[in-house]
Design a protein around this nucleic acid. Structure first.
Lengths: 636, 636
DNA sequence: ATGTAGGCTCCCGGCCGACAA
DNA sequence: TTGTCGGCCGGGAGCCTACAT
């Protein structure tokens, strides 16, 4: 196999593709060099199973390998530009495979007029909401050409970054894409919130760093925990500026130099890179080519990206600017793809390759959306609250009072993303399986709730919405989260209208009880009980769980939401106090409780939203009839 | 002014545009006919103010007027094809104006493989929801090339059709587009629901008709009230088949003949035609060309159409098939359009012309979305319920009991589009003013609520959501419709928590009861009951379930939705508290309750997905950089 | 070894009149 | 009168080698 970054000549309409000699000799079928100008036809399949045919010729003075006929079609169909890369692989059976990896290019900003479109934002939320509420499939799209996916992070990466404490002075390496010295090193000079007001305690870009080399404006001075690798021992610092390197780095950016007010730094390129190595996550991709056997591809696959963006660096409330890109893509249901994915023996070195969501590779990887989700939620909250003069103090005041037994991704009282009883889903299930579940995500500064009561979570926080689905059968029981009462930006994710418990608790003598996984709640009159023992008995009776609750070894846990919307363990408080503050009781499995805790970092992971407006971006692909021009679908 | 339908030669890449002699002499500046081949440059502005330049030459043997240079650019930029029409107008000041009218062409169906995307559907709903909740602008897009807009009907037209009762035997005319006898006549042979189970009392295609001429498969045998014109006195019926006419009709369809399984008939072409005449509604349009002074048009204006579609005529549950097309388009906020619209003195004969949503013409027209919405709602419900064996009988049984004070567009107990307290808005306000308010609409067979409580409207139907906005200032007080609590498929359209019972309980003495599988709810006055025993008796009586509810072994369960939208078991709470908090009562089978526990996807919803795949279609426009290839924005 | 540029060819877009409906 | 066709021309796509790095 070989990979070559395309040159201007390679991608111009003027000529063909210069095949590096070694690559051609290793990878292509041998030519008959006795001929004057030996040539042959190469047939290579891409990830979608589409065959591409090239004329492979060996000619010129000095002799070199070229791909001529067919190449320009490939270039235009795939919408490749200089800087993108192609990859040829030869399977054991001699079959030639072909992949592409697009360069990460900062985009020109789009005008505000198509940005900040609050309409497209709840649209995406609604996708998510509907998917959750109906337990149906949804999509995560990743447009590597458009964004660095700073808000979609491999789950393990995030967890690891949290597990490895970083202190000021820590030396680290950080990988950069498209750089002939792909690793840069630096030292952590400080740890602080990027925006302590808008995003207190956000982990996002909370590290202030000094780079060992002067790498100019292209590198941000703040990075996120998960972007760096502090575990390696680093050589002594050599402060040498490397102009040549810099120049190369800069010129390798094919578009205009990053406009800080828009692109806000180039970090996060490697979000998926690591997972590529560790988890077969693929990066830098083509999207699925939509290939309909019935109707062809020409009018079907329309690139559709939305780009949203907020002005950068507003002075107080919103300042950092980032992009997150989503796209929307059709899902071919029963298409007859015959691409890479069909054979598990296909090398898993597809790093930076196309992905095909319709078939499964064998590997899996987890992404965490926790931070992202939290960000999402908190953003909405913060955005809404920002104008309120008492917001900051209020938030900080109330923070210490919060006890959150499940970790910190969602904090009662902070996070609008609330789920009242989705407890049966383990934290580890907080992964996305792109085989069947993909999610369109968006982040948008302008989306905001319109009623104050909406961003104050009404229900106790218990578990994140679980985003798990069976890859084989999206509709089966794997997705049984009973996710009710979820809200995002004031939109009910479940379509319910959860009303504040204020009305209920005062009116009702009974306390509602929800069991994990059950849509139907029961009610229990605590005043008729004499203590926790009675409670347990009654709960066992109501839910036909005789003997299961009293014995903690049976794996059940009783939690409750108190009047402050905190989720607490039942039994700690004196009984009568408990009765006074309880607003709802939950029955969870032990696993669920534990798993809700896993991977959550300290308090509020709210972060970056404000700083990082979401960019919902259109695909740049210009060709209508090409199968691969849509935003990339991340496959895990 | 003149208008010419483009010929194949006009639109081919081979040549230019043949200008009809009379038209050129009347409309174009005079040429110097003394020259051998007189020519001049014509400059014409389109509705967006974009100037188009053509070389106008008078040559050939015999002499004729031609537009050569510049014409092919225009054709390709506007994505015009043979059958579309161009219109030239000369203003008083001699300024030349240019418009286009696209032909209504049935589209090729799209493969199922890109269908079944339930995600795109709530996306659109969410656009609407957010726009309403934030009182911001939203869009109605109409892609005349893609759909017949059967669900976007001029309001007056709808009202008129309702006002003029049609009986069996009524003779009528109906207009068809692209037909050299544009009017066809027929007789109403029956009036009945197209789908009495899924859409009882729907006006949509409720008329069975027999056409006077045998017009083959191309014409549906069912039409909607508003499609016909019964007011004209018709000549005696002459049953003559007109093969030549038919042939012409058929060949005038530029694409493949309508596939019944996909396009489901060709009616509704004239939805806008009438309003063109009566209300200055414009049809067949270009969309707004997005012209950003900052960034140009090339990457900004992305054609985006969505097309959703369900298979036609499935035997039982879902049979009506139509398309609704939506598109999404960016809105240029403060662009400096200098098109037609800038001068009110511009002739209002823009019938079939481009439209520019940023400026206002003087005319207005109203659209009703009522029937469409009703279909939407009922569809969803129907899908959910369809698989249940007891559905049909139940529905028909209880239908006569329904009292619906507002006519037929929204039926209580049927329509998820509910507004809890928008009662101050008269029915007549159900209009859309596209100057400032445009709405992306979609109709989707597969959208369905996920919880029983959600498809059963919680509130009495009072008034439709009012979709009125001030054309001049979208943000001012004209949009004060107090539109709260609107729900669409369980999504709150307002983003608020309408706290249903608080309002409704004061208004209604009865509590609604829905039985699983039944489209139609009952209401029960709890204040007249003395306890749970009474309740059970009354429920058994209402639903003819004597003995079934009291005995839990019969497999029925009584649940209720409380004021917090939690679903609870009836009987746990003290009776009087129950009465205070209950918002709706549900009768479910034990199995169904268990399903709720396992997961929220019930089997039936899955099967519905399979039955009615949704089609999400991208725009057909092939040029990325053209400003006018997006879906048409309807301007009224 | 390989990126780029110039030369060359061929195809297609596009202007023309011929011809016919 | 005007729709379509063949002829013709020019520009660009695309294959080639030469040259530079």
């Amino acid at each position: 196999m070989f990979c070559k970054t395309l040159t201007a000549s390679d991608t111009s309409t003027h000529g063909g593709f210069s095949v590096p000699r070694r690559a051609a000799e290793d990878c292509f079928p041998p030519l008959d060099y006795k001929q004057q100008r030996p040539s042959q036809e190469l047939v290579a399949k891409d990830l979608h199973g589409v065959e591409w045919r090239f004329r492979h010729i060996y000619r010129g003075q000095p002799r070199r390998h070229l791909l001529t006929t067919g190449w320009s079609i490939f270039i235009s169909q795939k919408n490749l530009v200089s800087g993108d890369a192609v990859l040829f692989l030869r399977g054991e059976n001699g079959e030639l495979r072909l992949g592409i990896r697009r360069a990460v290019r900062p985009r020109n900003g789009l005008p505000d007029s198509i940005v900040g479109n609050q309409n497209s934002y709840p649209s995406v939320l609604s996708l998510l909401a509907n998917a959750i509420s109906t337990k149906s499939m949804f999509h995560v799209f990743y447009s590597p050409r458009a964004s660095h996916a700073e808000f979609v992070i491999p789950y393990q990466k995030y967890v690891r970054s949290i597990a490895n404490p970083v202190t000021t002075g820590t030396r680290f390496k950080m990988r950069f894409d498209r750089d002939d010295s792909p690793e840069r090193s630096g030292v952590v000079t400080g740890i602080s919130d990027l925006d302590p007001y808008g995003w207190p305690n956000s982990k996002w870009r909370c590290l202030m760093v000094r780079w060992d080399e002067d790498i100019g404006n292209d590198h941000q001075e703040r990075v996120s925990l998960w972007e760096i690798d502090p575990s390696v021992s680093l050589p002594p610092l050599s402060i040498q500026s490397s102009p040549r390197l810099m120049k190369k780095l800069r010129t390798s950016l094919q578009t205009t130099p990053p406009n800080n007010s828009i692109t806000a730094g180039g970090g996060g390129f490697m979000d998926f890179e690591e997972s590529v190595k560790s988890s077969k996550v693929l990066q830098g991709q083509e999207n699925i080519g939509f290939i309909s056997p019935l109707y062809g591809c020409d009018t079907v696959n329309r690139p559709q990206d939305f780009e949203m963006q907020a002005p950068a660096h507003p002075s107080l409330a919103l300042n950092a600017t980032q992009k997150a890109t989503i796209g929307e893509l059709m899902r071919a249901r029963h298409s007859t793809y015959t691409g890479f994915a069909e054979s598990d023996r296909f090398p898993k070195v597809l790093q930076g390759q196309e992905i095909c969501p319709l078939r499964s590779l064998t590997g899996k990887a987890n992404f965490t959306l926790g931070d992202w989700e939290s960000n999402l939620g908190c953003t909405s909250y913060n955005i809404y609250q920002a104008p309120k003069p008492n917001f900051f103090s209020l938030a900080s005041e109330s923070l210490p009072n919060i006890y959150f037994p499940y970790g910190d991704i969602r904090r009662a009282g902070q996070d609008p993303v609330m789920c009242s009883n989705a407890t049966n889903l383990p934290r580890e299930n907080m992964k996305i399986n792109p085989y069947s579940m993909q999610m369109g995500v968006a982040r948008n500064e302008v989306g905001r709730p319109n009623k104050p009561s909406e961003h104050k979570p009404q229900e106790s926080s218990s578990a994140p919405p679980t985003l798990v689905q069976n890859p084989r059968n999206p509709n089966d029981e794997d997705f049984n989260g009973t996710v009710t009462g979820c809200k995002l930006f004031g939109f009910s994710l479940t379509g319910e209208n959860p009303t504040p418990n204020s009305q209920s608790s005062s009116k009702r003598s009974c306390t509602k009880v929800h069991k994990q996984g059950s849509l139907v709640g029961r009610a229990i009159d605590l005043s008729k009980l004499n203590g926790y023992g009675d409670l347990l008995s009654e709960l066992e009776r109501l839910f036909s769980m005789e003997g299961l609750l009293r014995d903690s070894d049976k794996g059940w846990r009783i939690l409750y939401t108190d009047s402050e919307n905190d989720v607490m363990v039942v039994g700690d408080d004196p009984w009568h106090e408990f009765c006074n503050v309880v607003s709802k009781i939950h029955i969870y499995t032990q696993e669920e409780v534990e798993k809700m805790t896993i991977g959550m970092i300290s308090d509020d992971t709210q972060s970056c939203l404000e700083q990082a407006p979401v960019m919902l971006e259109m695909s740049k692909s210009s060709s209508v009839s090409q199968p691969d021009s849509s935003p990339t679908v991340i496959r895990v």
